[in-house]
Simulated assay, not measured.
Amino acid sequence: MTEVSPAWALSDNRHVLLAVHTGRQDIVELARSSAARLARAGITVRLLEDEAGALGLDDAEVVPADAEAARGAEIVMVFGGDGTFLRAAELARYSNAALMGVNLGRVGFLAETEPEAVEETLLAIERCEYSVEKRLAIEVDVLDARGVVVGGTWALNEASVEKSERSRVLDLVVAIDGRPLTSFGCDGVLFSTPTGSTAYAFSAGGPVVWPDVEAMLVVPSNAHALFARPLVTSPDSVLTVAIPADGNRARVSADGRRVLEVPEGGRVDVRRAARPVRIARVHQATFGDRLVAKFGLPVRGFRDARGHDPGRELAPPRNVLTRDLVDLGTVEGGGGGSTDDDA
């Protein structure tokens, strides 16, 4: 779902929270210059406590990196790769703030813009000329052998149930909506969102799913079974992995950032999160454009080198994802995906 007209357009008290990968000086400098421009436009810039020293912005509002960090903010502007973006998502999910990323990592599937187009992006923020996508997220419950919830977390990309001991195969049972589906030995099972379909799930052989599709993915990892294909389920399903009480030990990793241990004989339940993650979009690039640009997909066709016949494909439009500006007259609106890299 996409919101076209942000309510902040009517507000005179606007805040933007910065989330910055401060380990690189070029990223710090870009964040500083961006903050200065936002401040000149009358927007209050908010910094995280653990990043404020590196950024050195005297007029900025400094806040702890907790659930209140993005409260009242319009945008969480991310300077870094997808790892920084996922860290910022942990803050934004407690508020109505939308995430907007500047890709300074390797792939940057979640980012909205490249460094060369930052000025265009800042102008869009100043004018409230952006839309907001609502991305499905997942909630995870860890239960013990008695069925008592002993832990929980959430994920934007994926939650993976993994073996704790590298030398052992993890035996498990997969169930959908409380009904057992199959069992096998494996390295683990991934439960992915459409946003995360281009990340860990893609590397494990899962399908690429357009981000506006309402669904959840189940992707086995190195399963010792004939029926171990990726599954696409209803967004309203409850997905379960049960671990037999025979010495198998497992853990849950959410977005590669949060880890929970699964008790022996316990289980993991995954369902759609009550709150989606909001991502701001400025550039009119489709999800297909992002796939072509990020994965370097060949789009010319195998006959391209044979001549200039009428069936030859036209040159692709200029695109911000190829470190160029979007040609708004030739490209239609779309979505995005994600990959677990960082700056």
Rank of each mutant, 00 (worst) to 15 (best):
V4S: 10
W8L: 09
A9H: 10
G23C: 05
R24Y: 09
R32L: 07
S34P: 03
R46P: 00
L47I: 05
E49Y: 03
E49S: 10
D50E: 12
G53M: 05
L57M: 11
V63H: 04
M77N: 03
G81H: 01
D82K: 04
T84S: 15
A98K: 02
L104E: 09
R106E: 04
F109K: 08
E112V: 01
P115Q: 08
L123F: 08
A124E: 04
A124D: 05
R127L: 14
C128G: 04
Y130A: 00
E133T: 04
K134I: 02
A137R: 13
I138T: 05
G147Y: 09
T153I: 03
W154V: 04
A159L: 06
S160H: 10
E165D: 14
R168G: 00
V169D: 06
R179T: 12
R179L: 07
L181P: 03
P194A: 13
F202C: 07
V208S: 07
V218G: 00
S221W: 13
S234E: 14
D236M: 14
V241I: 11
A242N: 00
A254Q: 05
V259D: 09
E264W: 11
V268C: 06
R272Q: 14
R278D: 01
F287D: 13
R290M: 14
L297F: 11
L314V: 09
P316Q: 09
P317G: 11
R318C: 08
T330E: 15
G334D: 11
